[in-house]
Amino acid sequence: MEESRLMKYEIDENGYIIKGYEPDAKDIPDGVVDAWEGSGFFKPRYDREQGQWVEGATQEEIDEILKGTNPINEPVSEVEQMKEQILNLQRMCNVLMANQP
């Protein structure tokens, strides 16, 4: 049987990621879970009861991320621009990690 090449994640008591590990890392603690397969999540959360990854963001949070919270004519601060860039990078990383061979 071929070993999974998915990232492995240490999660907190609520199922949110604390730390990620490469699949061949030597220092992986007990209790880590494999990364999710399939489409990415905005805020991945591991549901221990279901034994699978679920979306941790509420629909309201997702809607805010997708539409942005800034009115069209209001100037955006540099900090807000950076926050948006970080969120976009985080979403892209989630998708890329989920699609690793």
Rank of each mutant, 00 (worst) to 15 (best):
F41C: 07
K83E: 10
D34V: 00
P29K: 10
F41S: 02
E64A: 10
E64P: 00
E49T: 12
E49N: 09
R45F: 03
A25F: 04
E61L: 02
G38S: 05
D34N: 14
T69W: 05
G68R: 08
T69K: 13
E84C: 04
V54Q: 07
D34F: 05
Y46A: 04
D63L: 06
Q50A: 15
V54G: 02
A35V: 01
G31K: 05
I65S: 03
V76I: 14
K43L: 04
A57F: 02
S39D: 10
G31A: 06
I86N: 02
F42N: 01
P71V: 14
G56K: 00
M82Q: 14
A57K: 03
F42P: 01
R48N: 11
E49D: 14
Q85C: 08
G40L: 07
E37G: 08
V76F: 03
Q81E: 14
N70H: 03
E37R: 15
Q50G: 10
E61I: 03
L66H: 12
E78F: 08
T58K: 01
I65C: 07
P71W: 10
T58E: 06
G51A: 04
T58C: 02
A57P: 04
M82T: 09
Q59W: 03
D27G: 09
S39C: 04
P29A: 04
N70Y: 07
I86W: 07
E49S: 13
K67M: 08
D63R: 10
R48F: 12
A25C: 11
A25N: 13
I72V: 09
G38Y: 05
Q52V: 09
N70K: 06
K26A: 13
G40I: 07
I86V: 13
K83R: 07
M82V: 10
E61Y: 03
E37H: 12
V79C: 13
I62M: 11
V33Y: 07
D30I: 02
N70R: 14
G31H: 03
E60T: 02
G51K: 00
E37Y: 09
Q50K: 15
L87M: 14
R45D: 01
D63E: 08
S77Y: 11
A57N: 00
P71T: 13
I62V: 15
V32F: 07
Y46P: 00
E60I: 05
I62P: 05
K26F: 09
E37I: 13
P44T: 12
Q85V: 02
D27W: 06
E74V: 15
V79D: 15
F42K: 01
G38E: 00
Q52I: 06
I72L: 12
W36M: 09
T58P: 01
D27T: 07
K43A: 01
D47C: 03
P44S: 01
P75Y: 08
I62Q: 10
E84V: 13
E55M: 09
V32E: 05
P44F: 00
L87P: 02
E60Y: 01
D34W: 11
